[in-house]
Each structure stands twice: as C-alpha cells, then as structure tokens.
Design a protein around this nucleic acid. Sequence first.
DNA 1: GCCAACGTTGGC
DNA 2: GCCAACGTTGGC
Length: 153
Amino acid sequence: MRYWLMKSEPECYGIDHLAKEPKKITPWDGVRNYQARNMMRDEMKKGDLAFFYHSNANPPGIAGVVEVVKQGYPDHTAFDPTDEHYDPKSDPDNPRWFMVDVKLKQKFKQEISLKELRDNPGLEAMQLLKKGNRLSVMPVEKQHWDVIMNILG
DNA sequence: GCCAACGTTGGC
DNA sequence: GCCAACGTTGGC
C-alpha cells in the first residue's frame, strides 16, 4: 500500500465537488504530464491512499484523503475534441493519457495549509515542499503521511 | 500580476 | 542531440 498526493484547483474541482458526486467517486482526468501519467498508469494501486491537495487556492493546502478505487485506465477525455483536455495525439488504440478513479475517504474539518506543512518539523524532505515542485501527482512517504495525519490530532 | 522553475516544441 | 523560445504551474 502506497501513499500519494494529488493536486487540483478548488475553483476547477475541489474536495466539495467530490463530496457531491453520487458515490463520492471521480475519475482523475485531464492530467497531461508524463511523470504524473506514469504514476497513475503504472504505480497507483487499488487501496492506495492520497491527499487531496488544493493548489492555486487561498491558502493552498491539504483538504482531505481519497482512496484509489480503480487502477490506471485510458483517459477518454483526450479523445473528445470538445473537451478542454483534448489531445489529438492520443490514439484510442494506443492511449497516451491515463487516469485512476478516487473515492473520498475523509474531508478534513480544517485544511492543513501549505504554511503549516512548512512549519511542521519532520516534513522538510517532502517532495511537495521542495522548490520548483510542479507535479500534480506525487508519492508521499509513509513517515510523512503519518506526521501529517497526526497534525489533525 | 509577478516570477521562478519546469516541461514542451521545433529549427538546426 | 542541442538549445532558444514559448507555455504552464503555482506560490506569493
């Protein structure tokens, strides 16, 4: 079982959107970055947990926890010319982009802001906190996961 | 709105 | 394969 962090802009799709889905499940579509794709396609497994991170938010931070309920499969929004994430180079017979389905496990009563994460001892090595980090899907080490869950008290 | 840090594209 | 130009991400 592995741990992850997935970013989304709350104005686009935040944790409250997910909470309103019929089964609290959503496909994590629209990712168009190869590193992030590789992780969703090859590494994320059913039962893995991920932080739902609000990027470009005020303030940015971790809003809750989701569980991977369906492993990597082709992102069909890449095949749809009317979709904003359409990619003509993705062939349905040889898909370029992949996604997973996630289910809301827990919405934090209070978000853990990026500043709180930075101020918290023990998280200095987290990929999220490193300079220039732009990946929208990234692994989280168990020790960091545990530290963050303990912040909730 | 600014800007650093990447990632992608395309000419050569 | 190199690299400049350009586009995007995302914190501030």
